[in-house]
């Protein structure tokens, strides 16, 4: 495929929104209140919408009648290129909000840069998505403050989630060989340049929320190369169930 690098780069972006959207979708109907339930579903819907835009573009690059659903449902586990953070489970609402917040801060910074991409389609998708993600960021950072500075129990639960999920933050800025070549072409985002600003923003909200910033210097990565945590396989067995059980049908 001529645009193989670009294709892979798009998956790198869109698999994040697919997997996080799927995780949030699991919660629908089970939220802590009707308001938060509706809001989380809303975020899930936004993320799936963005995913579809990216995949439709990727499918076009691939050609040969490839569709968004082939890309979403018919890859092997190691072919999904999302970061490890977004596949982490919905342990409790604290984990859900911390995962969301740690991703949203990155996502917003990322899209701001992607808007400047030389690739017009990616730039247009980013331009549309950024409005949605600004809301996600506001929602999750407000909840981090409520939970962190709420009750003793909520503080402890949220701190636990921060401590556990912190290890997945560094991967957001990791660059694969594909990333590097796409960045050189002026299409991709140089994530290394986002890192400092990311931690400044995250730390500021955590401080406001009276939460401690973990000191750990040990980080996990691998998702971008298709090496995932044990959680992804289970998520995919749900996601892919229909397409795998009833192949080659129209729905």
């Amino acid at each position: 495929m001529k645009n193989n690098n670009l294709y892979k780069y798009i998956l790198n972006i869109a698999d994040n929104t697919l997997i996080l959207g799927q995780r949030l979708g699991e919660l629908c109907g089970h939220g802590p209140s009707l308001e938060t339930d509706i809001a989380c579903t809303n975020i899930s819907l936004d993320l799936f919408g963005q995913t579809r835009n990216y995949y439709q573009y990727a499918a076009k690059l691939k050609g040969k009648n490839c569709t968004e659903d082939d890309i979403a449902f018919l890859r092997k586990e190691h072919e999904y290129l999302n970061v490890l953070l977004v596949e982490q489970p919905n342990t409790d609402f604290g984990y859900v909000m911390v995962r969301q917040f740690l991703f949203d801060v990155y996502h917003l910074l990322f899209l701001q840069e992607l808007q400047k991409s030389k690739d017009q389609t990616l730039s247009a998708i980013a331009n549309k998505a950024i409005k949605e993600v600004s809301y996600h960021y506001r929602f999750s950072s407000d909840w981090i403050k409520r939970l962190g500075d709420g009750t003793e129990e909520s503080h402890q639960r949220t701190q636990n989630a921060i401590n556990d999920l912190w290890t997945y933050t560094d991967e957001l800025f990791h660059q694969t060989e594909t990333d590097k070549s796409i960045i050189e072409e002026g299409i991709g985002v140089n994530t290394l340049k986002l890192k400092e600003e990311y931690y400044i923003r995250v730390n500021k909200i955590l401080q406001d929320a009276t939460l401690e910033i973990p000191e750990s210097k040990y980080f996990q990565k691998g998702g971008k190369q298709g090496m995932h945590t044990e959680h992804l396989g289970h998520l995919l067995s749900d996601l892919q169930y229909m397409q795998r059980t009833y192949p080659n049908m129209q729905w």
Partner: peptide, 11 residues
């Protein structure tokens, strides 16, 4: 399971 979340928002 949502009780602690609603309590936190209130507090």
């Amino acid at each position: 399971n949502g009780q602690w979340v609603r309590d936190a928002a209130m507090a």
